[in-house]
Write a protein that binds this DNA or RNA. Structure first.
Lengths: 113, 113
DNA sequence: CCCACGCTTTCCCATATGGGTATATGATAG
DNA sequence: CTATCATATACCCATATGGGAAAGCGTGGG
């Protein structure tokens, strides 16, 4: 088996930095591909491909607007990711404490040598 | 260029389903690789490789325990992901409304035909 | 002191990329 | 109806996988 397809799920889709940038850019409003490509500093076909992935996992919608095709955000798909990571909320504090204690122990141990 | 390395950042690391499973499993406490491999239904080397990735992005720590090496959760790295997706919170409601309105418009338009 | 056990690394594959370039589509404005 | 502009696809690469099998290794324990 190889790596999973980026279109397989939202987690995979947002693993790509450029795609995350696109989502952030779209928070400011709808945009045509060309504009996004410029802001990303990549070619138009490149941007198109990322948008395709985002569209396939449903994070982005497109609509015709005159001569342009405007891409817009549909952030609902990010909610599961937010919730999944949220399931670790109590752990990231807890582990912080543990690590903290761990470091303290180390220092203490060193002093007692 | 190819796809970015899974070890490049947390987003990439958690893009893999098995790795997400590992993190969930570790919420129940530390575990040796062998045990995780069984719970994941994969070979032990396979599990080891996933753990390596998680370790490299800092989502997991390991410590020696007798003859075993116990892997434990360090969820702090998930916080940025939680926060990043959180930045879209107001959008996933908003876009819901928009879509809703969009669908309503469509229906209306169809009736008026 | 040495061995067996638990893990990690190394190989070997098939596959899915992320990108750029060149080309095919498509739909809009005249 | 058609020339054009905006996008999407088709190719072509180099690369980084996720997996299993097999071999390497470190060290805990007897």
């Amino acid at each position: 088996m190889a790596r999973a397809a980026t279109t397989s799920d939202v987690f995979n889709a947002i693993a790509e930095p450029q795609r995350r940038k696109i989502l952030v850019l779209l928070r400011a409003g709808e945009r045509p591909v060309t504009e996004l490509a410029v802001e990303l500093g990549m070619t138009q076909p490149g941007a198109s491909k990322h948008l395709r992935v985002l569209r396939e996992v449903g994070l982005v919608r497109d609509r015709k607007a005159g001569k342009h095709r405007l891409y817009g955000l549909d952030a609902r798909g990010l909610r599961p990711v937010h919730e999944w990571t949220g399931g670790f909320e109590r752990f990231w504090n807890e582990s912080f404490d543990r690590l903290d204690a761990y470091v303290r122990d180390l220092k203490q141990a060193r002093q007692e040598e």
